[in-house]
Amino acid sequence: MTLFGTNLVAMVTPMHPDGTLSDTGLAGLVDHLLATGCDGLVVGGTTGESPTLTDAESARLVHDVAVRAAGRARVIAGIGTYDTATSVRRAREAEAAGANGLLLVCPYYSRPTQAGIVSHCTAVADATSLPVMLYDVPARTGVAMELPTLLELAEHPRIRAVKDAKGDLFEAMTVMSRTSLAYYCGIDELNLPYLASGAAGVVSVVGNAFADRNASLIDAVRRGDLEAARTIQGALLPLVEAIMRTSQGAIMAKAALAELGVIPSAAVRSPLLESPPAHLQRLTDALASMAVPV
């Protein structure tokens, strides 16, 4: 667990309205996440708008977050692409930039066979000395990491964890029972059931705004206090719905952070568009509900 932390946040990438990276926004976001109990910072993942980041921007983000965090949280670099050679290069650049681990998404769009997924992930894991967290998100990639694939990849000494955004809890429990892979819930709606089933932690989008609530949820489950855990998760539900079930997680997480004054702008890069008024109202109402202590 300590390889990656337990209360991880899939960080947004703060930007100016013209689409350039915001150094001030990034520094403020890292400080906010550390202050609210985040012990793992996932940089340049899906929520960080990775498809729109250049290689240079990705490496710069990892470096700047690592410097700002100064060892107070693990820095996990999203380096996965649909091209193995590019993913290998990005992995090496992330290691040089100061990453503590790698987030490796299943190759998207090209829809490789399961053998191709194993080959891709093995090549990336062989490229650096960093531990690897696999990212299984078939709704985005078009192909899932199947059970035999996960079992095979678990044999690699540097493949140590899975961010599961597939939502097959039975499969997750099966893999956890048969391997040493640490599972992290990558679906904010299902954080509680995953944690109760043995997940090591969460990789949360909603945690951009309220990582402290996720920290309390993880602690409650670890104490065996499921009643407290249900209360915490119940209080989070309006915000989870507003961020994850309106336009898009990255868009709404940025809107929440801007509303809270953590980042100066909710700007996103095309093809993403900022939140429409109806979504912002739902978000404002959900944020107001978070002022009620649990």
Results as ranks from 00 to 15, higher is better:
175 V>M: 13
175 V>W: 08
175 V>I: 15
177 S>P: 04
177 S>H: 14
177 S>M: 15
179 T>V: 14
181 L>Q: 06
182 A>V: 10
182 A>W: 06
184 Y>E: 07
186 G>A: 09
188 D>I: 04
189 E>W: 00
189 E>C: 02
189 E>Q: 14
190 L>N: 02
190 L>Y: 08
191 N>Q: 13
191 N>F: 04
192 L>G: 01
193 P>D: 11
193 P>R: 07
193 P>I: 06
195 L>H: 07
196 A>V: 13
197 S>Q: 14
198 G>N: 12
198 G>H: 13
198 G>P: 09
199 A>Q: 05
200 A>D: 05
200 A>N: 04
201 G>W: 02
201 G>L: 08
202 V>R: 00
203 V>N: 01
207 G>W: 08
208 N>F: 10
209 A>T: 08
210 F>W: 13
211 A>Q: 10
212 D>A: 13
212 D>R: 10
213 R>V: 03
213 R>E: 12
214 N>P: 03
214 N>H: 15
215 A>T: 13
215 A>P: 04
216 S>Y: 00
216 S>V: 02
217 L>C: 11
217 L>F: 06
218 I>G: 01
218 I>W: 01
218 I>Q: 00
219 D>W: 02
222 R>M: 14
223 R>M: 15
223 R>K: 15
225 D>V: 12
226 L>G: 06
226 L>W: 13
227 E>Y: 09
229 A>M: 12
230 R>Y: 11
231 T>D: 09
232 I>Q: 00
233 Q>E: 15
233 Q>L: 02
233 Q>F: 01
234 G>I: 10
234 G>W: 08
235 A>H: 11
236 L>V: 05
238 P>H: 03
238 P>F: 04
240 V>K: 03
241 E>W: 03
241 E>Q: 12
241 E>L: 05
242 A>P: 07
242 A>Q: 06
242 A>W: 03
242 A>D: 07
242 A>L: 11
242 A>G: 12
243 I>M: 11
245 R>D: 06
247 S>C: 10
247 S>D: 09
247 S>Q: 13
247 S>F: 01
250 A>D: 04
251 I>L: 05
251 I>W: 05
251 I>P: 02
252 M>E: 14
253 A>Q: 04
255 A>S: 11
255 A>W: 00
257 L>R: 00
258 A>E: 15
258 A>H: 08
259 E>T: 15
259 E>C: 05
259 E>F: 00
261 G>R: 08
264 P>V: 06
267 A>T: 04
268 V>T: 14
271 P>D: 10
271 P>F: 09
272 L>I: 08
272 L>Q: 06
272 L>V: 07
273 L>P: 02
274 E>Y: 09
274 E>L: 06
275 S>V: 15
277 P>F: 08
277 P>E: 13
